[in-house]
């Protein structure tokens, strides 16, 4: 029996900026994990992955990352990618803070 499919988000690095991006439900790339589309259907996820891999002039290193049903990262590596490094607020947490201010 194959393992049940668990929720995923499609993620990559942006070609020009290098920063972490996620695929949104509208098919665009967003920088905030909260705006990413949570994929719950395996076929759907695979199609999205193949399509995203074609976008070689926009993104680099596309893959599906595990998330909870609520879209939170399951692995701590994805947590760091979504927030930024822990020694300086130079990653995504910088823009989050800017929004809060």
């Amino acid at each position: 029996m194959t393992r049940a499919f668990t929720p995923k988000v499609l993620t990559a690095n942006h070609l020009l900026e290098g920063d972490v991006v996620y695929l949104s439900a509208s098919g665009g790339w967003v920088r905030d994990l909260a705006q990413a589309e949570v994929l719950t259907n395996e076929v759907d996820a695979q199609i999205r992955l193949i399509e995203a891999e074609q976008q070689v002039d926009t993104v680099v290193g596309v893959y599906l990352a595990d998330v909870t049903a609520e879209g939170q990262p399951k692995h701590f590596r994805e947590d760091f990618r979504a927030t930024g490094p822990s020694n300086y607020a130079h990653g995504k947490q910088a823009s989050t803070q800017a929004e809060l201010n």
């Binding site: 690095n13 290098g18 972490v20 680099v60 590596r77 760091f80 930024g84 490094p85 990653g91 995504k92």
Partner: peptide, 21 residues
């Protein structure tokens, strides 16, 4: 493509890391 570019950028010290180049 990225596959073609990667060895060229690495020869010049450019990595793609977790959050950025």
């Amino acid at each position: 493509t990225e596959d073609e570019f990667k060895p060229l950028r690495l020869m010049n010290g450019v990595y793609l890391q977790l959050h950025a180049y």
